[in-house]
């Protein structure tokens, strides 16, 4: 159980960074932490102690120790989506810096009400 809770702890650390940090780049790092912690959690779902790859090599082989390959495939997809979001966030951060000349979100507050 411990690895699962460690993952949740990582998610919370990332969320803490997103909520409390003032620097945009740190927010993005916090967000990446959340994302990777969830990916790790997803990969752990398919984990099996002493598991073997799910490839049938000879007839009569025991299939009870096959690792579930689906979570890994899903995590790959999630990583690609994460890549797109991180890239877009960083691109936005660069444009924000060009306009506002700062990364401090407390100074980027024109919209209110």
């Amino acid at each position: 159980m411990i690895p699962y809770f460690a993952c949740i702890l990582l998610v919370l650390i990332g969320l803490y960074a997103v909520v409390t940090k003032r620097n945009i780049v740190r927010i993005i790092i916090g967000f990446s932490l959340v994302e990777y912690a969830i990916n790790l959690f997803f990969a752990l779902v398919g984990f099996k102690r002493e598991g073997i790859p799910p490839i049938i090599t000879e007839l009569g082989q025991s299939r009870s120790n096959f690792v579930d390959p689906l979570p890994q495939a899903l995590v790959l997809t999630a990583i690609v989506i994460g890549l797109a979001t991180t890239a877009l966030m960083l691109a936005l951060a660069m444009r924000i810096y060009e306009k506002y000349r700062t990364f401090d979100i407390t100074e980027i507050r024109r919209l209110r009400g």
Partner: peptide
């Protein structure tokens, strides 16, 4: 100015929502 600020804010909050959905799907699986 406004568009970039709104876009970044939207993105951070929206992606937290996306992360929550992904975590829920992991638990469901």
């Amino acid at each position: 100015f406004d568009e970039l600020e709104a876009g970044f804010k939207y993105m951070v909050i929206g992606e937290i929502g996306g992360a929550a959905i992904l975590l829920a799907i992991a638990l469901l699986y």
